[in-house]
Amino acid sequence: MTDRTAASIADRAAAATPAGLTRRVRGLSDRAIAWLFIAPTIVLLLAINIFPLIWTVYLSFTNYRANRPGRVIDWVGTRNYERLLGSEDVWEYMQATAHFVSWTMIIQVILGLGLALLINKNFKGAGFWTTIILIPMMLSPAVVGTFWTYLYQPQTGIFSYIINAFVEVGPIDMIGSPGLAPWSIIIVDTWMWTPYIMLLSLAGLRSIPDYLYEAAEIDRANTWQKFWHITLPRVMPFLMLAVLFRGIENFKMFDMVVELTSGGPGSITELASINLKREAFEKWRTGYASAFAVILFVTVFGLGNIYVKALNRVKQ
């Protein structure tokens, strides 16, 4: 667009502005006009983000129950927090969440980067395979959870059938067995979200200039040295970003796991968010659930901040 065309558009826009409005705006400073523009967004943010957050913090110090509208709300101080932090069960939910988040991240980073390295070879049909690999990511988590319950079915599911084709161990109860259930959700999440890590890693790989590898060739670097000294450091910021997004998502994981295991057997796969929902909308302990939500928020926020600082250091 040339300067002349731009000026002409600006003139026409100015001419189209109603005279009354021009007069009113003319009296305002640039700063005031800027505030005018961002005010709706700020109001919206305050209404749907900040106010509920403050309200949740307030409720966390009360015995409020949303299913008893007429009841007087009593201030209970830090009782909800004391109960939460002193509860063995809550620590088990946090452990289950940490187990799920850590293993999904480790496995998905390894597989995602591996797949990205393969796809980056630009072999024949690479585009087709990229599309195929991306399909799970496009599905709804609830749908994925539901159909994996069928795949995991010990007698008729394909998962057990495939394992038995290699090792005859009989029907494998992935969802019902206390030892296997935590891995059943990790496998499904990995199946669904490894493509996401792959996609971001691929973006990182494609951003590495060829001259770096050419220089390494001249220096007679072997494949491992090229990977360790060029590929990995260059891809690392992308990988760390992917881990940040997926880590936060998995910390909040709910729908897929509820459909798959309902948090069972027992509470073995009951992640923090599943328990939070039970406390808030099944038991209706709104005050207690608010305190739990605040603890989870602070945890994610704190971990996220530490991680972002590390990410910035890697970028530098």
């Binding site: 010990p154 029907p171 109860d173 019902g176 057997p265």
Partner: peptide
């Protein structure tokens, strides 16, 4: 433990 079909855990 003794008498249900495999996978009858939920």
């Amino acid at each position: 433990e003794c008498c249900v079909p495999p996978g009858h855990s939920d």
